[in-house]
Design a protein around this nucleic acid. Structure first.
Lengths: 147, 147
DNA sequence: AAACTTGTAAAGGTATTTATTACAACTTTG
DNA sequence: CAAAGTTGTAATAAATACCTTTACAAGTTT
């Protein structure tokens, strides 16, 4: 299993929007070209980012823009926006353990606390990384390939 | 997306094996009853745990046993045994970004380092929790429901 | 009005996961 | 040694989740 690629697509999109913002209108079609995915996928991700207040889009005229400073958007914000994982839902539980068995009846509660802590620690790491970090690293990569 | 339920099934199984070890022979059929899953699924998980040296099983006579002390088996050991997630594979990348675009060509490398760190920090948390912790908590839950 | 773009629903396809069936190999017991 | 019970594993089917594509209404610009 993997965290949905919508998350890395979202980071890709946001990096593109910032990179090309002064150069051209960044439409879903253009972004689809860079990501190499269908434009409807891109529009779906943009929809989620818009609902989270991270980007603005305009019908008709087209083009997406980032609404906040890059160092005010954490990877956690993006992760939450594209709805990667339910609250406490990182670890899948098997449905309907047998309640006639003392273990089946209680194991879920016993595991929950620990697994929630693990998920929280992962999400806390996401909060420490900002879109600005990724954009800077991407630009370094681009400069490295030219020099 | 979620981490496969084989992980929580494995913890459930191991807790059962320990809990019932002095009382009865713990067969895959019995475990399937507690988990409420098909016995073949249980045998598959037991196979993986056996390959990792966490349990031993016996053909014919039947029954599974844990090979180490519970406080020497971390949730990370179990997580690795049941092959939840590939190395650096927690976050799914969209395949084939457009290499004609400077962002498409470089974003992957720029994200990789950060996402690997996040996955590592999650896995390090798994190393801090032992099967003994989960078993103790489960027994506390059982005692609480009786008293 | 024409051309272009976003927003979203709906249908189709693909991949992954889980469940089931089947049976060979092994162990114990009478 | 035969019968009963169990593990180990392959193969197939079913269910679920995910991604892609088609279609079109609604908005904007020229």
């Amino acid at each position: 299993m993997q965290i949905t690629s919508r998350f890395t697509i979202a980071i890709h999109i946001l990096t593109c929007i910032d990179y090309f913002k002064d150069e051209r209108r960044v439409t879903s079609e253009f972004l689809a070209g860079s990501v190499n995915a269908n434009a409807v996928i891109i529009r779906g991700v943009l929809s989620q980012l818009r609902a989270a207040g991270i980007v603005s889009t305009r019908q008709g005229s087209g083009g997406a823009a980032i609404t906040r400073a890059l160092n005010e958007i954490s990877l956690y914000d993006i992760y939450k926006a594209v709805d990667c994982i339910d609250e406490n839902g990182l670890f899948g539980f098997h449905a309907n353990p047998n309640t006639d068995c003392p273990i089946g009846r209680n194991i879920h509660k016993a595991m929950d606390k620990h697994l929630t802590n693990i998920q929280n620690s992962m999400e806390n790491e996401l909060k420490k990384i900002y879109l600005s970090d990724v954009v800077e690293d991407t630009i370094k990569q681009i400069q490295a390939e030219n020099g």
